[in-house]
Design a protein around this nucleic acid. Structure first.
Length: 189
DNA sequence: AGGAAGATCTACT
DNA sequence: GTAGATCTTCCTA
């Protein structure tokens, strides 16, 4: 039961993406905890990464990526909120996108937020998990912290990790930057 | 004012 | 499994 500190995110986003698998994302709503194991992530770099939001330089909608590691960065795509954590070494730019969770606690609450009954479709995609956990733009720019009702814990869960190219990306890098837990049914696709 | 977006849902072959 | 409609932010003009 260790809450992850901001320093965890002060390194290459690829390493952060790998290390986040098996960690627990905790979201507090009305004093109740909604929890899920992180089972799918993607790493994004800065201006040399054509798939990154930061590729075209600093803009209003992406400026958080230049901020300190550990900050939450949220953007909207097709009416879906994408949940990222700013991750980079000093002087660089980058973020890790959380793509899927394996629900642990507060499942009833999440189903109500999503208005569905099938648990397997509850949090198996980036836009789905933000709705289930009531994450939206208002959290963008805040740090992961119990103070802000959202944080990540390490409970020592061990997972088998696989990798692939990123999803939905038009111009991907050669490197494989999507990481997921092997044999977990909550991984998207 | 117009358009595009790292997705999701639904309805099928 | 794949294909097509969807509809909200936020960008560029």
């Amino acid at each position: 039961m260790v809450i992850i500190k901001n320093e965890f995110f002060r390194r290459n986003p690829k390493l952060v993406a790998i290390d986040l698998l098996g960690k627990i994302l905790v979201r507090i709503i009305d004093n109740k905890a909604l929890e899920g194991i992180i089972v799918e992530t993607e790493a994004y770099f800065g201006q040399d990464d054509p798939a990154s939001r930061a590729y075209h330089g600093k803009k209003n909608y992406n400026k958080e990526m230049w901020d300190d590691p550990g900050k939450i960065f949220i953007y909207n795509v097709h009416n879906n909120w994408m949940f990222n954590v700013v991750s980079h070494e000093d002087g660089k730019v980058g973020a890790v996108l959380i793509r899927a969770l394996h629900p642990l606690k507060g499942v009833e609450e999440m189903m109500r937020n999503r208005k569905i009954k099938d648990i397997r479709k509850l949090t198996n995609g980036p836009g789905k998990l933000t709705k289930a956990l009531k994450i939206d733009k208002s959290l963008s720019g805040k740090f992961l912290s119990p103070k802000n009702s959202i944080y990540i814990e390490d409970r020592g869960v061990k997972v088998k990790i696989g990798s692939s190219h990123r999803i939905g990306v038009r111009k991907d890098l050669k490197e494989k930057l999507r990481f997921f837990v092997i044999d977990d049914e909550f991984v998207s696709r």
